[in-house]
């Protein structure tokens, strides 16, 4: 399942971003990395992304703003928040804004992967449901056509 997940990591800290990407790739995840919220939105518009790992504290467009923008433009994309500090309030706000979950840095890579998988499953479920609904709707239309 891991191999089919398209992941986007957003973090302004390049060292962290690169290492995390290397580790995720080693585990077979299709992962891309960007350094800011703006780039993340751009990337999302360009490529199909399932799950976004989003750092809360970033210069420019910060995590929460980015989250809002993502949820507005791509509501199906699941977002996992990464807080660089123990500010749970921000995380909770993020959850309220529609983030899938949050993790505190430094986090365990396996834990992160589990969450990513969960998020992916949720997204898949969501998409299947939508597709089903569409199908039913289309089916209804076909019936009408007949």
């Amino acid at each position: 399942m891991i191999e089919s997940i398209k992941l986007l990591v957003v973090d302004d800290e390049l060292d962290f971003l690169e290492t995390l990407m290397k580790r995720l790739r080693k585990r077979g995840v299709h992962v891309q990395g960007v350094k800011s919220g703006e780039e993340a939105l751009e990337c999302l518009g360009r490529e199909p992304i399932d799950v976004v790992i989003l750092d809360v504290k970033m210069p420019g467009m910060d995590g929460l703003e980015t989250l809002k923008a993502i949820k507005a433009k791509h509501p199906l994309v699941e977002v996992i928040m990464l807080t660089g500090h123990a500010n749970v309030e921000t995380a909770v706000t993020g959850m309220e804004l529609g983030a899938f979950d949050y993790l505190m840095k430094p986090m365990d890579i396996d834990e992160l992967l589990y969450k990513v998988q969960d998020a992916y499953q949720k997204k898949m479920l969501h998409e299947t449901r939508i597709a089903l609904r569409r199908k039913i709707a289309e089916g209804g239309n076909e019936d009408e056509d007949k």
Binding site: E13, D15, F16, T19, L20, K22, R23, K26, R27, G84, H85, K105, P106, M107, I109
Partner: peptide, 19 residues
């Protein structure tokens, strides 16, 4: 705040070595 990020990187790098 200041220390948390470097630690995150260090742990991540160590994880990479492990990988």
């Amino acid at each position: 705040h200041e220390i948390n990020n470097p630690i995150a990187i260090m742990v991540e790098e160590a994880g990479w070595i492990e990988d």
